[in-house]
Simulated scan of single mutants.
Amino acid sequence: MPQLSAHTAQQTALSADALNLLKRLIATPSFSREEEHTAELIAAFFLEKQIPFERLRYNIWAKNRHFDPAKPTILLNSHHDTVKPNKSWTLDPFNPLERDGKLFGLGSNDAGGCLVSLIATFVYFYDRPDMAYNLMLAASAEEEISGRDGLELLLPELPPISFAIVGEPTEMQLAIAEKGLLVLDCTAHGISGHAARDEGDNAIYKAIQDINWLITYQFPKVSPTLGPVKLSVTIINAGTQHNVVPDTCTFTIDARVTEQYTLEEVIETIQANIQSDVKPRSIRLKPSSIPADHPIVKAGVALGRHTYGSPTTSDQAVLNCPSLKCGPGHSGRSHSADEFIYLHEIEEGVDGYIRMLEQIL
């Protein structure tokens, strides 16, 4: 058998380390806001590798050995929290089971495989003295609930970031844009009256007029990667009894916003065109993107990856820098019963991240 090169041997060892860490993470429950023990596992991994790290609540981050404040910094980020297992699981979600070339377990695909692959990549480059960029690894909490004590809490503690690679399952394809999320609570106002007589002003009918506008309106600017802004009415409530004309009707809009608009612009457009009161729950989860000609995107394309726009929301939403979403695993397995990741996907994740970064570092 031919001897492995030092380069390949190191990556093989790092992939094995990544797999072992992932198994320990799966075996340790880490629901959002309950990530203390997985944070301890990641900290222990860095201690074992003799890599200094810092911790803020359940977020762990580390810098490369030769960090130079004069150089731009690349952030490698993924999360270690998980959703709760649904009732359709047939396996133990906390038992990291290897079978048929797969690793089963809660968080294996979303986003444990991405996280451990990024950690292995960070370790690979940690000692390199001659890089054009600094590297920083952040294992963050509360991503699954878009919580404020995850990456958003950590960002003020970090140096300026030139761009970020956010690890989410994309089959190592390049999500160069991601829709932002805007949730709007709306209230249509009418006048109460008796349903049997011609009294009152039905708030439901006013809400229907507004909802019809939401159904038919199209924002004129369309994203080349994400398509149009998407507005969906997902909740509606009105009325107390059958013979009373309701004086209020509440409904909720789920707005998926592209990089063509700010969240504030979308709110202003809706407020100007419907009668109902409009109250945003939050304007934190912004659309994000990275130019198609950015060096890290070109590096991925050179490896045969394709670019696309992602409809789902991740920790990219709280970043204020260009960011690329990319990682091993398949988005369709996320939050599913008997979640798994293929073993070869972890190896390909480590190799893919390293090969992309080598072209620019």
Rank of each mutant, 00 (worst) to 15 (best):
Q3L: 15
S5Q: 02
A6H: 14
H7F: 14
T12H: 11
T12Y: 12
A18F: 09
L19C: 01
L19G: 02
L19S: 04
N20L: 13
L21N: 07
R24F: 08
R33I: 10
H37S: 13
E40G: 06
L41Q: 06
A43H: 01
A44Q: 12
F46C: 04
E48R: 13
I51Y: 07
P52F: 05
R55I: 05
L56I: 13
I60A: 00
I60E: 00
W61F: 13
K63W: 14
H66G: 02
H66S: 05
L76R: 02
H80S: 06
D81K: 04
D81F: 03
D81L: 07
T82S: 01
V83C: 12
P85K: 08
N86V: 08
D92W: 08
D92I: 06
L97Y: 13
E98G: 04
D100S: 14
L106A: 12
S117T: 09
S117N: 10
V123G: 08
P129L: 09
D130F: 04
Y133D: 08
A141Q: 09
E142Y: 06
E142H: 05
E143W: 02
E144Q: 10
E144K: 10
D149W: 13
D149L: 14
P156F: 01
A164R: 12
V166D: 07
E168W: 08
T170F: 07
T170W: 10
A175S: 01
A175T: 00
I176K: 11
A177Y: 08
A177H: 10
L182W: 08
H189S: 12
G193T: 00
H194E: 00
A196C: 11
G200I: 00
K206Y: 06
I208W: 07
Q209A: 11
N212G: 03
I215G: 02
Y217G: 01
Q218T: 07
V222E: 10
V222I: 13
L226S: 03
G227A: 07
G227W: 11
V229F: 02
L231G: 05
V233W: 02
V233H: 04
I235N: 09
N237H: 08
T240S: 12
V245W: 00
D247T: 00
T248F: 05
T250L: 00
F251W: 00
I253A: 01
D254M: 06
V257Y: 05
Q260D: 12
L263R: 07
E264M: 06
E265S: 11
E265D: 11
V266S: 03
V266D: 05
I267P: 01
E268K: 15
I270N: 05
Q275H: 13
Q275W: 09
S276N: 05
D277C: 08
P280Y: 03
R284V: 04
I290W: 10
P291S: 15
P291D: 14
A292Q: 12
H294L: 01
P295Q: 06
V297D: 09
G300D: 03
V301E: 09
A302C: 05
G304F: 01
G309D: 10
N320W: 02
C326F: 12
P328A: 07
H330L: 13
G332I: 14
H335D: 09
F340S: 06
I341S: 02
Y342Q: 14
L343V: 09
L343N: 07
L343S: 06
E345D: 15
E345H: 15
E345L: 06
E345A: 14
G349F: 06
G352K: 04
G352Y: 05
M356D: 01
I360E: 04
